[in-house]
Design a protein around this nucleic acid. Structure first.
Length: 878
DNA sequence: TTAGTCACG
DNA sequence: ACGTACGTGACTAAT
């Protein structure tokens, strides 16, 4: 979402960062530190691969606005230095190393990152020039494996120095430098070098003066010149002689060690601004066999990503003209073409860098061998807003949510999207892992690989007829298609975190974890990584000889169940359990959420995936806001982080009460279950009464909790083993519960048998709304596979129907909010819960509206119930 | 990249 | 006589 990713400009909160990389020293480091990776053609790529990985990390962490990579042009001294290392380490030859430089430069340039080299200058000098001449409002960060460059540190210039290898970075600013160099100024580094010299750089210095003496002298006199003026005051006769005899050498050495800050390079910082990655980089990465590298860069730099492959390729292959709409004439031309289109127009939205782009095509436009590209910077976009929001102008797309979002940035509500082929493909068969244009075309248009526009048009018509055949058109048109704009609104809105609280909780958690770590080391009697199940296994089961309860494929199991069983046998166990819990909370929720707070909006914009799950549920990623802790009081504190944003007063949580069991009752037509719900009974207590054969008012809390587990188990496709494990009772006892359950709930029992038989016959199961899931393995002769498919057959109609109902509810809630022109809005969906942001004055109205919409989303034989709660944070809404 | 672990409904 | 609850995503270590 470009508008949200846009950098702060003017009145910036943070200064722009200029990342200046010493390509030579890093390649050198990487070359010797990393495994000698080669391609099939025998090209050494290890060092460049390492450099790329490092850049990715830097881009991600530093988020620079500008970047340049400097290389040494004259590499003679460099080479001789390398040869010694080569002899010592038996690594690839220096000539192979020198080949790394042009390769690295090629890769960087291909990605759109500027590289620099200059005759008669070293990388140092180029870097020094940037450090001094970059505009004062820019922060400069130098990344290097060369300690000399520490002399460039000043208020706005930091050095990331790579210690051994390239992954271990030490950050030097003025304070860190002082701490490492006994209080010297960074600029005094050259004075040190002037006296002690540097053999690897052929700087002679004063023979016989090493780091210790040099440091002492410079600390006392400040610079080489003053030292030389005061030779007679220096203690030690031989030192006096050495200094006297090497005055010239000392002064020359100082000069040699001084990095030039006036190299003739282009210092106009704008020309180093990072750009979205160029498409050519993809091919080069493939040639070099760098897996995922292009995509990883595309993520940090921006640029076309996967689902658009086909567009890019087709444009080239077919010799189509891609027309960037950036003049009023071209805008007029496109506008006319859109007006003339008899068939729907295909629109593809994507975010390149920070800007949304729309690609337009249609059968007619294609006949002219054209594709139009419109971006937000062109100044022509306004003209198309009305077309985009005109319901009569039919549009076909893939990923309509992205299109909605791109236009929401401009406050335009897109209408007239008649097809989203990804959603169509997903409804037709939700079992695939990808619904990209390429994969959809491969699966549904065998042998036809045309232009993206043609593929979209063909896919839309083909999938439509398939859906009609499968009686899924309604599901597609009335559930999935209209849900997309609702999700777009939710993602666009995002949810506000209380950043202060987040940092506070993180700090507290950090202290608690540190204490536990120390305690664990003490209790174990040795140091080990608590986060490593493997190391922990060795400690527990070999050193401490604790009984092995469970094994995994690779060794001992150390999961919470196992640890709980061992609790009490050794004090370490309790420490580990506590540490695990806290470390999880910290890394996933406290640390993990921070980078996902959008700097522009200050909010967290999750992504709701509409084509991921096999059951029809949504999923949430980057971050996953559907698994924020809730189950224990302590972990629920994390939910306090989520608060109403500016202009809102409360969060409102609306959740369905027992949807899945209600749905089970209806699908199974089980009289007992239906009756329980009709009478509004506590469903788990009622189940307990039935299973344990006692009157409702004699059900104990333990009986109720067991019955609750039975109810869950039923929905999952119960087994005595699973239930026994869950309840921590014997298998026979669990089997007994199940038997008595089925004795009472005969409708449920029959449903389970029938649905498995139906799945076997048809090859799929369906939800009440006709959503299908194919289960080919239900006919497998492999017991495991078949059993799994059978449990799935039982669960999917229940989970899937619940998902369908929630989708319908969301569409209704959004419609009603819009109709009533409410400011309040939906932010999150957590399977059976909606979270909204509301204003105090709309509170009652919205509560009423949401409850009505949710409870009316389906008419079953029994009523649906939704509970509504408000609070000043998410934890309070329970 | 995979396996283990654990957060949610 | 098989070996097991359904559906997700993120983080970490180790390959």
């Amino acid at each position: 979402m470009f508008i949200l990713c846009e950098r702060h400009r003017g009145g910036a909160v943070m200064a722009d960062k200029f990342l200046v990389i010493d390509g030579s020293s890093l390649i050198h480091r990487a070359f010797f530190a990393l495994p000698p990776l080669t391609t099939r053609q025998g090209i050494h790529t290890g060092a460049v691969y390492g450099l790329c990985n490092m850049l990715l990390k830097l881009l991600d962490e530093v988020k620079p606005r500008y970047m340049a990579v400097a290389f040494d042009k004259s590499r003679k001294t460099f080479r001789s230095k390398l040869y010694a290392e080569y002899k010592a380490q038996r690594k690839p030859t220096p000539s192979e190393l020198s080949e790394q430089f042009p390769l690295a430069m090629k890769v960087l340039e291909c990605m759109g990152i500027r590289t620099l080299e200059l005759d008669d200058y070293e990388a140092d000098d180029i870097i020094g020039t940037f450090a001094v001449q970059a505009p004062p409002e820019v922060d400069v960060i130098i990344v290097t494996g060369d300690r000399d460059e520490l002399q460039l540190i000043d208020k706005r210039t930091k050095v990331f120095y790579t210690k051994r290898g390239i992954s271990d970075i030490q950050v030097f600013d003025e304070a860190e430098f002082a701490a490492n160099y006994e209080g010297l100024q960074p600029k005094q580094l050259i004075e040190l070098k002037g006296l002690m010299g540097d053999t690897s750089d052929n700087i002679p210095g004063v023979p016989g003066v090493g780091p210790k003496t040099a440091m002492k002298l410079i600390k006392e006199y400040g610079n080489v010149e003053t030292v030389l003026e005061n030779i007679e005051k220096v203690s030690g006769k031989s030192l006096k002689t050495k200094l006297t005899d090497n005055k010239e050498s000392a002064l020359l050495s100082k000069q040699l060690a001084t990095i030039c800050t006036e190299a003739p390079v282009d210092t106009a910082v704008q020309t180093y601004e990072l750009q979205p990655i160029k498409e050519e980089a993809r091919t080069l990465m493939q040639d070099l066999e760098f897996r995922n590298m292009y995509e990883r860069f595309a993520v940090v730099l921006g640029g076309a990503q996967d689902s658009f492959d086909l567009f890019g390729e087709a444009v080239e292959q077919e010799g189509l003209q891609q027309i960037a709409v950036n003049t009023p004439q071209l805008a007029e031309e496109l506008f006319a073409a859109l007006g003339k289109a008899k068939q729907p127009v295909t629109v593809h939205a994507q975010v390149a860098g920070q800007l949304p782009e729309l690609y337009f095509s249609s059968a007619e436009i294609l006949a002219d061998n054209k594709i139009y590209l419109l971006d937000a910077q062109s100044g022509c976009w306004d003209k198309f807003d009305s077309w985009l929001s005109d319901a009569g102008s039919k549009k076909i797309t893939i990923d309509s949510k992205e299109l909605y979002k791109c236009c929401l940035c401009r406050k335009v509500k897109v209408q007239g999207i008649v097809d989203d082929v990804a959603l169509a493909g997903y409804v037709a068969d939700p079992g695939h892992s990808s619904y990209s244009l390429e994969d959809l075309s491969r699966r549904n248009l065998p042998g036809v690989l045309a232009t993206p526009c043609e593929n979209l048009l063909q896919l839309a018509s083909k999938l439509r007829s398939l859906l009609a055949e499968q009686q899924q058109l309604k599901l597609y048109e009335e559930f999935e298609l209209p849900l997309a704009p609702v999700l777009a609104q939710m993602e666009f809105a995002g949810i506000t975190p209380d950043k202060e609280l987040l940092l506070q909780l993180n700090e507290d958690m950090g202290h608690r974890i540190a204490k536990l770590e120390a305690l664990a080391q003490e209790q174990a009697g040795e140091e080990f990584n608590l986060k490593s199940p493997k190391q922990l296994g060795v400690i527990l089961f070999e050193r401490l000889q604790l009984p092995v309860i469970k094994k995994t494929k690779t060794g001992y199991s150390t999961d919470a169940k196992v640890l709980e069983a061992l609790e009490g046998k050794h004090p370490l166990i309790a420490t580990i359990l506590e540490h695990r819990k806290l470390a999880k909370l910290q890394s996933t929720y406290l640390e993990g959420l921070q980078p996902l707070i959008n700097p522009k909006t200050g909010r967290i914009h999750t992504h709701f995936q509409q084509t991921v799950t096999v059951t029809g549920r949504l999923s949430s990623t980057d971050p996953n806001l559907q698994n924020i802790p809730a189950r224990t009081e302590e972990s629920r504190q994390i939910r306090r982080i989520f608060v109403p944003g500016a202009g809102y007063d409360l969060l409102m949580s609306c959740d369905y009460s027992q949807v899945e069991l209600r749905i089970l009752a209806c699908i199974a037509q089980d009289e007992l279950l239906l009756e329980a719900f009709r009478h509004g009974q506590d469903i788990h207590a009622r189940t307990a009464a039935e299973v344990f054969g006692v009157p409702l008012d004699e059900v104990t809390p333990q009986m109720r909790s067991r019955a609750k587990a039975v109810n869950f188990g039923i929905v999952y496709g119960i087994s005595d083993f699973g239930l026994a494990k869950q309840l921590d009772v014997g298998r026979k006892e669990a089997a007994g519960y199940i038997a008595s359950y089925f004795e009472r709930y005969t409708g449920v029992k029959k449903y389970m048998e029938d649905i498995v038989a139906e799945a076997r016959e048809q090859g799929y199961v369906s939800t009440l709304m006709g959503r299908r899931r194919y289960l080919p393995e239900i006919r497998s002769s492999n017991f495991n596979l078949r059993s799994f498919a059978e449990r799935t057959a039982i669960n999917t109609p229940i989970q899937g129907t619940a998902a369908d109902i929630m989708k319908k509810a969301m569409i209704a809630v959004q419609r009603e909010l819009d109709k009533a022109q409410c400011k309040s809005r939906i932010l999150l969906q957590v399977h059976d819960e909606l979270v909204l942001e509301v204003t105090e004055d709309e509170k009652e109205q919205v509560a009423q509206l949401v409850r009505t919409a949710m409870e009316g989303a389906a008419s079953l034989d029994i009523p649906l119930l939704a509970d509504v709660n408000c609070g000043r944070d998410w934890a309070e809404t329970k």
